[in-house]
Design a protein around this nucleic acid. Structure first.
Length: 490
RNA sequence: GGUUCCUUGGCCGAGUGGCUUAGGCACUGGUCUGCAAAACCAGGUACGGCGGUUCGAAUCCGCCAGGAACCUCCA
């Protein structure tokens, strides 16, 4: 069965059928984090969204090269620290080497992404490791006449670019509108035009992170790294460029301008943007200071959190909304996600308890088709999840013998459930007694359940309830089913 | 001020012209059970407001109200 994927391309503002530039191969570039702070819920969204995309593409037999950068230089402050970048600033405050800060938060980011079961990208390049490549891009743009030097800094000439190429094709902005609405910022005097953006910034004397260049000791401009690194690892043209919607303008627009001048064409065929996670209707982000870190979610250590939420709960919560919709944070919503996920996980674990019949009384094929068409329709994970809950119903009904399934279909059905839940959505059955090394515990538990069953047979409810309650206090849930009791670790 | 977008039931959240009871959580009733939980079955509440197009609109158009993102580092 061949599956077609449709994705929403921000460039065309419509869903398009995905066709890779090279058959069977996909180049994917996603803007990664700036490592000057702890990873928060907002960081989880693009990571999970594009993890889902790469998992799906790989499942459909594409060879995917997924590049996600680490931004460890650049990014000007907008306050009085002219020319000082955020990482350098934090380093001075903490009296640490900049690269020490970078290493610390990079490790933190990796740790938390791993907990969320986000697979590592194929390549994770650092901006600081690609200064030479970035300088090459600058030289290229200078040679072509779309940049100029001013006091040791190099600026991209947006107006000149706009005469020859369409500026604003991604964001839908018109240069005339931008001209009349641009604010006054640092270094404005060096620029010929307020719209121009820096490719290279001369470092102020106190600026720690600096590299030599033909123009000045300084550091690369804040849009350049993605152009340089995507070209290095994916080529001048690649399939998909992803990132948060907040990067659409100016970051991605500038990337397009830089790459278009340097290479003669736009860098990516498809642009995908995930929406924001909101809290109280507002974007959760660094600048508003309203973010909750992933560590806080996992420990419950935050005033807005009623309890701790597991990594898989967070992942499921994010996947329950479409990536292009805003998703509002709330304890009630998270707890709903937690319970729903629990039900889904239990069904997955129960798959192995189903016994086959001679016939199948529901359509596996229909189930399969619905699941594929949901996820292939611009990563519609909420619909996929809705379909998977139908699968849960099927599982429960099979266990209750309300439905029947043949051995062959059972095998197929099991594989499908595990494929979509574990492999594609990347949800694992965390924290369950599924390690396999607990067979001794299993024996002890079965002994206790047998004792309770005997007590029940003697109508000794006191003993039966005592066993159940004591186990509950220890964190075990006892469930009485049609075919005896079972247990589960909470 | 400009650009883009959003407003769905108690909560979260899909759906883009005609029965989607989307789905999850919560709630109500029932079945099962010694009781409870789980599971299963059944059920209710909805498309911001006004007007228009249409045989028919949550879905298209217009206006109004409210909200958001971006225009400055941000996922």
């Amino acid at each position: 069965m061949t599956k077609e994927i449709y994705i929403y391309n921000t460039l065309s503002r419509s869903k398009e059928k995905f066709e890779s530039l090279t058959p069977g191969k996909v180049g994917l570039y996603v803007c990664g984090p700036t490592v000057y702070g702890d990873p928060h819920l907002g960081h989880a969204r693009p990571a999970i969204t594009f993890d889902l995309l790469s998992r799906l593409l790989r499942h459909l037999d594409y060879k995917v090269r997924y590049v996600r950068n680490i931004t460890d230089v650049g990014h000007l402050e907008n306050d009085a620290d002219e020319g000082e970048d955020k990482i350098a600033k934090k380093a001075k405050l903490d009296e640490l080497e900049p690269m020490e800060v970078v290493q610390y938060y990079t490790d933190r980011y990796h740790d938390y992404m791993q907990m969320l079961n986000v697979k590592s990208p194929s390549i994770e390049p650092r901006a600081s490791g690609h200064i030479i490549e970035q300088q090459e891009v600058i030289k290229n743009i200078l040679e072509k006449g779309y940049a100029y030097e001013s006091n040791g800094s190099i600026y991209f000439d947006v107006k000149k670019y706009d005469q020859d190429f369409p500026y604003g094709i991604l964001s839908g902005r018109k240069i005339e509108d931008l001209i009349s609405n641009t604010r006054n910022l640092d270094g404005q005097s060096e620029k010929r035009d307020a719209l121009d953006f820096a490719l290279w910034k001369k470092a102020a004397p106190e600026h720690i992170m600096r590299w030599p260049s033909p123009w000045s000791d300084g550091f690369p401009g804040w849009h350049l790294e993605c152009s340089a690194m995507s070209k290095k690892y994916l080529g001048e043209q690649f399939d998909i460029h992803g990132g948060g919607m907040d990067l659409l303008f100016p970051h991605h627009e500038c990337e397009i301008a830089q790459s278009t001048v340097a290479n003669g064409h736009t860098p990516a065929k498809y642009w995908m943007h995930n929406n924001m996670i909101t809290i109280g209707g507002q974007k959760m982000g660094k600048s508003l200071g309203n973010f909750i870190t992933l560590e806080q979610f996992f420990t419950g250590n935050h005033e807005k959190l009623e309890k701790a939420y597991s990594p898989m709960t967070i992942r499921f919560f994010i996947l329950q909304a479409h990536y292009r919709s805003t998703l509002d944070f709330g304890n009630e919503a998270l707890q709903a996600a937690e319970k729903g996920l629990e039900r889904l996980n239990e069904a997955i674990l129960n798959l192995d308890k189903i016994s086959a019949s001679t016939e199948t009384t529901f359509s596996i094929e229909e189930f399969e088709n619905k699941c594929y068409s949901a996820i292939c329709d611009d990563l519609n994970s909420p619909i996929l999840i809705a379909n998977l809950f139908e699968g849960v119903k099927h599982i429960n009904n099979l266990l209750a013998s309300n439905l029947k399934i043949s051995a062959q279909d059972l095998d197929h059905f099991k594989n499908l459930m595990k494929l979509f839940v574990n492999d594609i959505l990347g949800l694992t059955q965390e924290g369950k007694a599924d390690s396999g090394a607990d067979s001794k515990l299993d024996d002890v538990m079965n002994l206790l359940l047998q004792l309770r069953s005997d007590a029940k047979a003697n109508k000794d409810w006191g003993t039966a309830d005592k066993i159940r309650n004591e186990l509950q206090n220890l964190g075990f849930v006892v469930k009485d089913g049609a075919e005896g009791a079972s247990w589960e670790l909470k």
